[in-house]
């Protein structure tokens, strides 16, 4: 709650120090030639009122779930967001799952092969994932797999000739499966795979490093020796006993890594023409559309808070010693 208020104040303060005049930015040449248009524009968006009034009007609207009206699309930001969120959600969730599967697996292997060659190779791969600019990786991936090899389709969520599946969740892959449209599902996956992989690279590295250190710490514990003394196979020891105990720190990072995904989507969505909130926020930033940016920031902050609430609940589920407060 505090965070939301903080974001709204912060975002609002930003608008007050904008040297660029949004009216000029959005009306273009008309602004200089047509003063009435500027006045009407300002009245329409409440820009003529004193700043504190603007803020309280804004805050009041927020409480009703009203994020204001975008100065670019001339639509309610909430409606804009509703349109763009499913695309980003599909991309972000897919990349998160990929990063988690790969990162945890590599991290476990690195820990079990500590300081051997495998560990070093994994160290280079994971740090490489965290060191590669996502915009560059996206371009290289597009160049190789689309431009040269033509293995995957280029931009967008679907081929131009494929109609989106009937809207249920907005996630095309799930909607297509629900509607039994296998061809649409496959097309969605083809479009999804490359941006999702690019987006996963950074977090994969992060999860690998964290899993490795968490697993190494757990391996020191006496109960791992107990599990081995029972004659359990090493696979069971690692995946049931070690990974279970190592999961709280990993879950924490997953919560934090959400921020990385959002940073990545801004870049990746622009390059892959993915119609999500990353692209939307970029368009809004370049158009000095602060209402829209504030809307995105608020939404993202709320999701961040929700994600970390889920993390806290997961903590209590994983570790019986943690009581649910």
């Amino acid at each position: 709650m505090f965070l939301c208020l903080g974001v709204s104040v912060m975002a609002f303060v930003l608008t007050t120090v904008v040297p660029g005049d949004p009216a000029v930015a959005n009306l273009g040449d008309r602004a200089s030639s047509d003063p009435t248009a500027v006045r009407l524009y300002r009245e329409h968006f409440g820009l003529d009122k004193p700043l504190p009034v603007q803020y309280f009007v804004y805050l009041g609207n927020l409480l009703h779930g009203d994020l204001g009206e975008s100065e670019q699309s001339r639509r309610a930001v909430r409606i804009d967001l509703a349109e763009y969120i499913p695309a980003t959600a599909e991309l972000a969730i897919t990349s998160m799952v990929l990063a988690l599967l790969l990162g945890v697996t590599l991290g476990v292997i690195a820990a079990l092969r500590r300081n051997r060659l495998t560990d070093q190779v994994i160290r280079v791969v994971s740090l490489g994932g965290m060191s590669t600019p996502q915009f560059w990786l996206a371009l290289v991936a597009l160049y190789v797999f689309f431009y040269k090899l033509n293995w995957v389709p280029g931009a967008g969520r679907l081929d131009a000739i494929v109609l989106p599946p009937p809207h249920v969740t907005g996630l095309f892959s799930i909607d297509a499966l629900a509607a039994g449209q296998l061809d649409v599902f496959l097309n969605t996956v083809q479009h999804l795979i490359l941006p999702a992989c690019v987006l996963a690279a950074f977090n994969m590295g992060l999860f690998t490093r964290f899993t490795r250190s968490a697993v190494l710490e757990v391996l020191e514990n006496d109960y791992v020796r107990t599990a081995r003394a029972k004659g359990l196979p090493e696979v069971t020891v690692v995946f049931r006993h070690v990974l279970r105990a190592a999961s709280p720190p990993i879950v924490t990072v997953v919560g934090l890594a959400f921020g990385n995904v959002m940073t990545g989507t801004v870049l990746v969505e622009n390059i892959f023409s993915w119609p999500g909130i990353g692209q939307y926020s970029y368009r809004s930033a370049t158009g000095l559309d602060l209402t829209a940016i504030v809307g995105v920031m608020l939404f993202v902050a709320i999701v961040y808070i929700l994600v970390n609430m889920v993390v806290d609940i997961l903590y209590a589920v994983i570790d019986p010693r943690v009581g649910l407060a």
């Binding site: 514990n221 006496d222 109960y223 020796r225 107990t226 599990a227 003394a229 029972k230 049931r240 006993h241 279970r244 105990a245 994983i318 570790d319 019986p320 010693r321």
Partner: peptide, 16 residues
């Protein structure tokens, strides 16, 4: 052969 370790607190898995 089974083995019982010294410290029962650290020798049992805390989360299972």
């Amino acid at each position: 052969i089974a083995m019982v370790f010294q410290d029962p607190t650290s020798s049992l898995h805390p989360m299972l």
